[in-house]
């Protein structure tokens, strides 16, 4: 299994290095904006300053993007099926369970790496703002992590068998889009509401009295990830055993 993970890494390493550089670039950009707000004419103009203060929090949405980008490697697994590697594996004595488990494990490793990047990135933002990295922020990022992990595990099933089944693919894509939209709309709505409050602190957004759903979301997403992993594993092994390799 180790060497299969090594193979996946060789295939996708460029993507993840890009992801890392992307996060670093955004962090630098944030730092530059923050510095520019505190110097010269910009700092004296209260209106501009407030506008920037409000809009700068868009940077907080980078972690979900980082996590979502980590999903992009799914196309490599589909490629694997197309280039015949999956068929080759079926001609060896490697068990189907190992093939599926390796794919899931690799996804988990990559998503965990993206999670760590997201936390470091957020910690950086908090330090730059002089505010603490609270448990609520971490739980929020973890919720997104579990959501994307769950979707990622269902992608494994897609890549092993349902790739050409347009209906299933359409349903899966719709569910993904709806989940992202619900999360996105809710978040932006809350920020808009809270931004109208003169005492508003962006970190309040993550506090339970403002966003109980987000806190419950942590448990919900965790459950979703665990169930997706179990169902994904069972279905993928079943599909791989039964699927005819053209």
């Amino acid at each position: 299994m180790k060497t299969l993970i090594y193979k996946d890494w060789l295939q996708t390493r460029k993507l993840y290095l890009t992801l890392l550089l992307f996060s670093a670039l955004i962090a630098v950009l944030f730092l530059l904006v923050r510095i520019s707000m505190n110097c010269g004419n910009l700092a004296d103009n209260e209106e501009v300053r407030l506008s920037l203060e409000r809009n700068i929090y868009i940077f907080r949405y980078i972690p979900p993007f980082v996590l979502m980008l980590a999903l992009s490697e799914n196309s490599y697994i589909i490629k694997e099926s197309e280039c015949g590697f999956l068929r080759f594996m079926r001609t060896t004595s490697v068990r189907e369970e190992t093939i599926v488990l390796e794919k899931m494990l690799y996804k988990l490793i990559i998503l965990s790496a993206a999670f760590v990047i997201s936390v470091i990135y957020n910690a950086f933002l908090c330090i730059a703002d002089g505010k603490p990295l609270t448990l609520h922020i971490l739980m929020n990022i973890a919720s997104i992590f579990f959501l994307i992990s769950g979707l990622s595990f269902s992608d494994v099933v897609m890549s092993f068998g349902f790739r050409k089944n347009q209906t299933v693919l359409m349903i899966k894509t719709s569910v993904t889009v709806v989940l992202y939209l619900v999360w996105g709309i809710f978040t932006f709505k809350r920020i808009d509401e809270l931004s109208g409050n003169p005492d508003f602190d962006i970190l309040d957004f993550f506090r339970s009295e403002y966003s109980p759903i987000l806190n419950n979301a942590f448990l919900f997403m965790l459950l979703f990830a665990v169930l997706s992993a179990a169902a994904g594993y069972y279905l993928s092994v079943r599909i791989l055993r039964r699927r005819e390799m053209p």
Binding site: T3, L4, K7, Q11, C83, G84, M89
Partner: peptide, 22 residues
């Protein structure tokens, strides 16, 4: 088979490591 089943981005050194595990 008539088509190479290994990824085109790999090289022989890397393939040896991968097949060593298989």
């Amino acid at each position: 088979f008539d088509e190479l089943p290994f990824h085109e981005i790999l090289n022989a050194n890397q393939l040896s490591v991968i097949l060593g595990g298989i």
